[in-house]
Design a protein around this nucleic acid. Structure first.
Length: 446
DNA sequence: TCTGGGGTCCTAGGACCC
DNA sequence: TCTGGGGTCCTAGGACCC
């Protein structure tokens, strides 16, 4: 069956098929994931307020329930709430992605045992296709899943089940907010659904962010229930086709579908804010080389070559002083994944971009026009096959060493004098307990 | 005095997500 | 003093083509 034409737009096939088949999708969401990871390896953190900071110890990005109750908000700059945090004895961690990434992989491996189709949506969430069955069957299935994830990894999860992904997200939210439901919420009957949607604020809907929520509220739409019954044409004009899909999904019509085959990446980026502002070109070059190396390793790990690269530098949006944000894109002579070539091009772009006299806060690189080896257009004048093979062997060796001994064990140098003050701050790091031999947790015998 | 129409491709910017 | 990083999709507008 082909796609269906509705309200001036094509919607996917699933628009029709779902009405007939009444599929069910589950969203499994790890509770306060980063905090939960830290707690697994330090049980003394249980029942205590804990927060995890973003890179560079900038903002609050994860909070335990106790920290939420202290009024600590998501995204708050750390320096603004430091006094509050100290006063209440909140435990603070820098983000430890080596640990969270590995814990995530363990959770996903277990979830996979519960469904033939699964979409890993983010580091702490997955959508699963529910087998056909009664509500009772789904309740048992979800309860088993929660118990097994908790037993095998120590991570608590909430599960929402509904006919569309958008409704499943809402169900999981309800499951998390109302502990009496045992961590599982199934949205199915119409009356039940309408009642619950009336209590969901419009900004808490998946796909409705701050801007859209403000606009909707100004137009008298404050709840998920109101949005569900909004006029299609109006939604289409004000929220684009994406917004119309969200509304359809609230009505129980599947417009997004489960993506169990991950789509190929469209862009690969690496960037960081500096620990302290940087003014001179030499330090910018040093930082850029590092980020190009990271992004290029990611390209190779996915078997991709980039056909264009964008370099961007910024003085940041906050703070006093003159501001300068700029980016420049370069189409590469031939698509590639070879770090030294990419560094050479990147440094040339940076030379064009750099203006002296600014305090830079961030630099980064974005690779686009990604293609797989078999898609790659060959260049009549490019390296000989032997030279190409040498490059491949060389990068393969570098990647293998860095995979075994840690990122940056072997790196590309640029001439630079001073220290590395630009490196990001990570003052509250826990150990890489699961991915680094020297940082395994120790148990003391009494 | 009078100067087309329809299409594709690319990019920048804005919205969203975790 | 101190405000993350890495993604996605959609739209509008410009360049270009016949």
């Amino acid at each position: 069956m082909g796609p269906m034409f509705i309200s001036g737009e094509w919607l996917p096939v699933s628009f029709i098929s779902s009405r007939v088949s009444q599929t069910r999708v589950a969203l499994v969401d790890c509770n306060n994931f980063y905090v939960s990871c830290e707690r697994v390896f330090d049980p003394s953190l249980a029942h205590r307020p804990v927060v995890v900071l973003s890179n560079n110890d900038g903002c609050i990005i994860a909070r335990s329930e106790e920290a939420k109750q202290l009024g600590i908000c998501m995204g708050t700059p750390f320096f603004e709430c430091r006094a509050h945090i100290r006063q209440h004895g909140v435990q603070v961690f820098s983000s430890n992605y080596a640990l969270y990434g590995d814990m995530s992989a363990r959770v996903m491996e277990i979830l996979q045992q519960f469904s033939s189709r699964m979409e890993v949506y983010s580091i702490d969430e997955a959508f699963l296709d529910c087998a056909r069955g009664s509500r009772e069957n789904h309740e048992v299935w979800a309860a088993q899943m929660r118990a097994r994830v908790l037993r095998c990894t120590g991570i608590p999860v909430s599960i929402g089940i509904a006919s569309t992904k958008t409704l499943a997200k809402i169900a999981a939210r309800i499951a998390k907010k109302r502990p009496e439901r045992g961590g599982v919420c199934i949205l199915d009957s119409c009356e039940d659904c309408e009642l619950l949607l009336g209590a969901i604020a419009v900004e808490d809907i998946w796909g409705i962010g701050r801007r859209y929520a403000a606009m909707l509220r100004r137009s008298g739409i404050a709840t998920a229930l109101k949005l569900k019954h909004a006029d299609d044409g109006w939604v289409r004009r004000r929220l684009t086709i994406q917004g119309l899909r969200t509304v359809m999904e609230l009505r129980g019509i599947d417009c997004i579908g489960l993506q169990d085959m991950p789509a190929p990446a469209r862009g690969i980026r690496s960037s960081r804010s500096f620990g302290t502002p940087v003014e001179d070109l030499a330090h910018l070059r040093e930082a850029l080389v590092e980020y190009i190396s990271i992004a290029a390793a990611k390209l190779r790990s996915k078997g991709l070559s980039a056909s264009a690269m964008q370099v961007f530098i910024t003085t940041g949006r906050h703070g006093a002083g003159p501001q300068y944000n700029n980016a420049a894109t370069l189409t590469l002579p031939t698509p590639g994944d070879y770090t030294p070539d990419l560094i050479r091009h990147g440094l040339n772009v940076l030379n064009r971009l750099y203006r002296p006299g600014y305090r830079y806060r961030k630099i980064g690189v974005l690779f686009t026009g990604l293609q797989t080896a078999c898609e790659r257009q060959l260049d009549l004048f490019e390296d000989s096959p032997a030279a190409d093979e040498r490059k491949k062997c060389f990068m393969g060796a570098v990647d293998a060493i860095n995979a075994r001994w840690g990122r940056g064990t072997v790196s590309f140098a640029v001439p630079v004098g001073a220290g590395r003050g630009w490196r990001m701050r990570r003052r509250f790091m826990s150990g890489r307990y699961t991915t680094c031999w020297s940082e395994l947790p120790m148990v003391k015998a009494c």
